[in-house]
């Protein structure tokens, strides 16, 4: 099987997203966040990951989705980068899925806005669509001011 990929999946609302499983270091349940004043609004704070200080980015905010309900505790999807680990805050965690190339399709032209650059493509699963995120793009924050 040359054309199969494994993705770590998670949810924001009803939408299922996936990240290359090799980029995901671990999943950590909700951790108390230390807020960072003056930071980019997408940065929710800092967490202590076994002695390592990790920046947590709110993926909802990053994708331009409405904020999470207050009572929902987000889950940390910890992603490896060249500069250490970064956490993406998601609503709920899914399974690791194995998908094949035939199921893949580029994002439709109608998908516009910030999200377009962040999405590699879509896998058509039997019961739903799996949206694959581009980790580099998601983690590099846009400069708010031009």
């Amino acid at each position: 099987m040359t054309d199969s990929h494994q993705y770590c999946t998670f949810y924001l609302g009803d939408q299922c997203f996936g990240l290359d499983v090799l980029r995901v270091q671990e999943i950590v349940r909700y951790q108390p966040l230390t807020l960072v004043p003056l930071a980019h609004p997408m940065i929710r704070g800092l967490i202590n990951l076994r002695g390592q200080i990790v920046t947590a980015i709110d993926l909802r905010e990053r994708l331009g989705l409405p904020p999470r309900l207050e009572e929902l505790e987000p889950v940390n999807v910890v992603v490896q980068t060249d500069e250490g680990a970064v956490s993406l805050l998601v609503d709920e965690i899914g399974d690791v899925l194995e998908v094949t190339e035939e199921q893949f399709e580029r994002p439709p032209e109608t998908l516009q806005g910030t999200a377009r650059d962040l999405i590699q493509g879509v896998y058509k699963l039997a019961d739903r669509l799996l949206v694959i995120l581009e980790p580099e793009q998601v983690l590099s924050l846009p400069t708010a001011r031009t």
Partner: peptide, 12 residues
């Protein structure tokens, strides 16, 4: 510990 790249710009 140094802050990660996403927070480097905050001089305070």
């Amino acid at each position: 510990k140094p802050l990660q790249q996403q927070l480097k710009g905050i001089s305070v």
